[in-house]
Design a protein around this nucleic acid. Structure first.
Length: 283
DNA sequence: AAACAAACCTGTGCGC
DNA sequence: TGCGCACAGGTTTGTT
């Protein structure tokens, strides 16, 4: 569910409400969520620490701790990070609970990691050993918002490859953060067909693509991300985003194209994922 | 190198 | 109402 804008919204929630608060106790229910290490290791290395910042790279949340370790949280398909009052009733599938000490302004609270499908992960790791302990984080590609992604850089990333554009945009080792929704939205904005090979895109097309990536991710962050009908994605306080109201391709199969006003949005499977596009304005 | 399928899980919505 | 199937915002692994 969550892509860069949703993860960024969660990151901002962590920065505002969790950074700087001591974690007094930790509970781990489902051990699968901490499978990279173990229940005991996560509890031991988290208890008594304080997050010193909340960072993000692509869809990975990385929060350094005052102990020198860092926590990585990946929401995968159905993960949520929620803030709740201490002792509040927990939803089903709450796998990790971090009890946050109160301070002068705030009463004690709990941070929950909730994840029905259990694909998500919470990992405590040593940043100095990231290449060994969290290799996929070390291998992540350029983050369009953290690093910036201009047309020249995108052109370099596309050069020498011959991949379907949709698959190219979804490859986290190249560009980190785009997922199925925003890849479709970006291609629609840029007027490029999802099956179009990277090698065949003109310089003007590359420029359009770079602009679309920055503009759409930026606008989606502003909107607090996309919350679909199932309300799977919500921020730390349980509120949804509003960028779903601006979708022009994703989830609009059979509906009219809002850009050209003449085409009908079609769906086809690319790279094993549903892809939505307007055959009239995307070529 | 790139395409494709399957795997990891649970929940929901739809056709019958 | 119930059942079975398709499908879901991600990523890795193995096979052509």
């Amino acid at each position: 569910m969550p892509e860069l804008p949703e993860v960024e919204t969660v990151r901002r929630g962590l920065a505002a409400h969790v950074v700087g608060r001591r974690i007094g106790a930790v509970e781990v229910g489902r051990e699968r969520t901490v499978r990279r290490t173990s229940r005991d290791e996560v509890i031991n290395r988290l208890t008594g620490t304080t997050m010193t910042s909340a960072d993000r790279r692509g869809k990975y949340l990385v929060c350094p701790l005052d102990s020198g370790d860092a926590v990585m949280i990946h929401l995968r398909m159905s993960g949520q990070v929620l803030l709740a009052a201490a002792g509040a009733d927990r939803p089903n599938h709450t796998h990790v609970v971090a009890h946050l000490d109160g301070d002068a302004q705030r009463p004690p609270a709990e941070m929950w990691f909730v994840d029905p499908r259990t694909f998500g992960e919470v990992v405590v790791f040593d940043p100095a050993a990231v290449a060994q302990d969290l290799p996929e984080l070390a291998r992540l590609g350029v983050d369009p918002l953290v690093d910036g992604l201009d047309a020249a850089t995108l052109g370099r990333l596309m050069a020498g490859r011959n991949r379907q554009l949709k698959a190219f945009l979804l490859d986290q080792h190249v560009i980190a953060g785009l997922g199925n929704i925003y890849a479709d939205e970006v291609l629609h904005r840029a007027g490029l067909h999802p099956l179009r090979p990277t090698a065949g895109v003109t310089k003007a097309g590359i420029a359009k693509l770079a602009t679309a990536i920055g503009d759409i991710l930026g606008a989606a962050v502003e909107a607090g991300g996309s919350t679909l009908g199932d309300a799977q994605y919500v921020d730390l306080m349980g509120s949804g985003g509003s960028y779903q109201d601006d979708h022009r391709a994703y989830g609009r199969t059979g509906e009219g194209c809002l850009t050209c006003g003449k085409g009908t949005i079609r769906r086809l499977v690319v790279n094993g994922r549903s892809s939505h596009f307007c055959p009239r304005c995307q070529r």
